[in-house]
Each structure stands twice: as structure tokens, then as C-alpha cells.
Simulated assay, not measured.
Amino acid sequence: MPDEPGRDPGRRSRRRAQGELEALVLAALRGAPGPVNTAWVQERLGQDLAYTTVITILTRLHAKGAVARERAGRSFVWTSGASEADLAALRMRRVLDAEKDREAVLASFVTSLEEDDERTLRALLAQEED
């Protein structure tokens, strides 16, 4: 692979796990003093991420309902709208929605749970029934 202009050939970029940047952005927003602009988020991430990359992540999180934004001049300010648990639940729901046999997927998921997790799930379902 040819060297990219302006890039140190001895430096290899680490491929991030799916959702890693989203989790980092959400964590930054949860620690924010209030609504913040994209540059504030970019500075907190401190990973030499391009401004456009941060905007893309924030826009995707907004589309998922994980962050809120409001117009501030010609750009936006951002606030956290979801926890990491909310985001994980959304990912789980998307996987389930993509499958044809939802019952089989749910059955497989439930039977693979550890005992404590199964107990927690049963308790949560019982609460919903009440």
C-alpha cells in the first residue's frame, strides 16, 4: 500500500472497534458542562480526529436518538441524550430487526444467558406484566 502524503510511514493507525468512537463521544458529552460545540468534543477526544469525523459521529448519534442538537448560529451545539446502555439496547434491537426468525434469535439469546442475567431478564419481564 503506498504511503499517504503527510503521514508518518512508521506509524500505523489502529482500527477501532465498532461503536468505540460513539462511546467516547457520548462519554465526552455526558461530562460536558452543558450544550457544547463540535470543536469542544473534538478537543476532549484528543485522538487527532478530523473535525469532519467528529461531525459524522455526532450526526450518526443524533440519527439514533442518542444525542440532541440545537442550532447555534450556523452550526449546532450537542448534548447527550442516551446512556451507553441505551445505545447497546438500540444495537441489539437493530440486530433483532434484521433477522427473519425473531423467535429463534430470541430463544437462542435467552438460552445463552448466564444464570444471573436470565434471572434479571425474567424479573424485568415480570415488572412489565404488572
Rank of each mutant, 00 (worst) to 15 (best):
T53Y: 01
R69F: 11
T79I: 03
A89H: 12
P35N: 07
R122G: 10
G73I: 04
T59E: 06
P9C: 01
A82F: 06
P35F: 06
R93M: 13
F76Y: 14
T56N: 13
A107R: 14
L49H: 03
E4L: 14
A50W: 05
A107S: 15
A27E: 15
L121T: 07
L58E: 01
L125W: 13
D48F: 01
P2R: 13
L45G: 01
R30Q: 14
R119I: 07
G65M: 08
A82C: 01
L106M: 09
D116L: 10
T79K: 07
I57P: 00
D48Y: 03
A27C: 15
L21S: 08
D101M: 10
L90Q: 10
D3M: 07
R12A: 06
R93E: 08
D130W: 11
V54R: 00
L24E: 12
A17W: 04
T53C: 02
L87E: 05
D3I: 11
L121A: 12
A89T: 08
A82I: 02
T59L: 04
A32D: 03
A82G: 01
R12C: 07
A39D: 08
G46K: 04
P5A: 05
Q42C: 01
Q47E: 10
P9V: 02
L90T: 03
T56E: 08
F109Q: 11
P35E: 06
A104S: 14
A89P: 07
L125N: 14
E114P: 11
P5S: 06
W78S: 06
P5L: 10
A50Q: 09
L113K: 03
Y51Q: 03
L49W: 00
F109W: 15
L113M: 04
A123F: 10
I57Y: 15
S75K: 13
V95W: 15
T56S: 06
D3Y: 14
H62F: 12
L96D: 07
L113S: 10
M92G: 06
Y51E: 06
V77P: 02
R71M: 04
G81Y: 02
G65R: 01
D86M: 02
L113T: 04
H62I: 03
R91M: 02
P35M: 09
A28H: 05
R122H: 09
T56Q: 14
Q47S: 09
K64M: 07
R16Q: 06
K100W: 12
V95T: 11
A66M: 09
L24T: 02
T38C: 06
A104T: 10
D101P: 08
